[in-house]
């Protein structure tokens, strides 16, 4: 190549390197600072190296409910991942054929991806508040109409009992696995759907026809032909499902009820905690993310290697 082209290459390489430094530098800084000595502060210099702040974190000192938040986020992330994968596969199949309303459904998914999260979050919060008001109102009206009335019957007693039960026990439908789960799915499903689109746009139906011709049932075709072929993409969907849920904050902010997720707790801590314990929490959170990303990439590499070994018997005279 010409000389000016190679100069471009070096300039752009330098820009790329700086961008990568910009991307990772700050995170590496807090990873290092989370090993700060017991008397160290929020910034450099390091005052010795210790696991003090991780012990501190584990003991929950100054960080109430942080372990709860971590467990909440893990559980929610796993549920979101499973649901995202299953719904995305089904929807991916559906979109291979024509059906009424498919454009509307597709644009709804895109809209869910790009409309402001605060609006979605507020909408879900309002929706559940209306649900709650409806249920409470229903309970109150049952109590008004059927408790302490003249001529009670078994039926009115039963309705009155339901009314008092609602009054005594019902607080809210809002929660991690109702409104919170829904809020996360509006964020993860569009990504899952787009990945499935990319998969099935490149998928050759001849494989399924061959399986059918050889007598496979629809389930067998899926299980033994389609699934192994699309597995790497499903790992991708799962990766998006978990990491997006694990890190989600904007849509969760109004929609998880009284339980807190880890990002919400972290955000709260930035204003109250002034010790490196927050960096320790950051390190733990990032470690979980990297473990998931690493597992996904490793799975992909293993699948690829297996394919190279077992995939084709062409030319082997089998």
């Amino acid at each position: 190549m010409t000389e000016s082209r190679s100069r471009t290459f070096y300039v752009l390489s330098a820009i790329f390197a700086l961008y990568v430094l910009f991307l990772y530098g700050p995170t590496i800084t807090i990873l290092v600072l989370s090993f700060q000595g017991p008397s160290g502060g929020m910034t450099f210099p390091m005052n010795g190296v210790s696991l003090h702040w991780f012990h501190n974190l584990w003991a929950g000192i100054g960080v109430p409910n942080v372990v709860d938040a971590l467990v909440n986020s893990l559980k929610l992330g796993i549920v979101v991942t499973i649901i995202t994968v299953v719904i995305s596969i089904l929807a991916g199949y559906a979109f291979r054929r024509r059906f009424r309303g498919q454009d509307t459904l597709f644009f709804t998914a895109i809209a869910s991806l790009i409309l402001p999260s605060i609006v979605v979050s507020l909408g879900i919060a309002l929706e559940f508040q209306l649900f709650n008001q409806t249920i409470t109102g229903f309970g109150d009206s049952l109590v008004d109409n059927y408790v302490d009335i003249e001529n009670p019957t078994g039926w009115t007693n039963f309705l009155g009992f339901i009314g008092t039960s609602i009054q005594d026990n019902f607080q809210t439908l809002m929660g991690l696995f109702s409104s919170g789960l829904g809020a996360h799915l509006t964020w993860t499903l569009p990504f899952g759907l787009l990945i499935m689109f990319a998969v099935f746009n490149r998928f050759n139906p001849a494989y399924e026809e061959a399986a059918r011709d050889l007598g496979a049932s629809p389930w067998q075709t899926f299980r033994f032909v389609v699934l192994p072929m699309i597995l790497p993409s499903l790992v991708g969907v799962a990766l998006f499902g978990f990491t997006l849920s694990w890190d989600e904050i904007a849509r969760s902010s109004q929609a998880v009820g009284s339980a807190n997720t880890l990002p919400l707790t972290l955000r709260g801590l930035t204003t109250t905690v002034t010790t490196p314990v927050i960096y320790a929490l950051g390190t733990v959170t990032t470690a979980v993310s990297f473990a998931v990303i690493g597992t996904a990439i490793a799975t992909l590499l293993i699948v690829q290697a297996r394919r190279r070994r077992h995939g084709s018997d062409a030319g082997r005279g089998v």
Partner: peptide, 20 residues
């Protein structure tokens, strides 16, 4: 295709369209 798309449509209806 309708039952396959139904779960997706349900989630978007309950947690996106209805809230808006």
């Amino acid at each position: 295709p309708y039952w396959q798309a139904a779960p997706l449509a349900f989630v978007f209806f309950v947690f996106f369209v209805l809230p808006l």
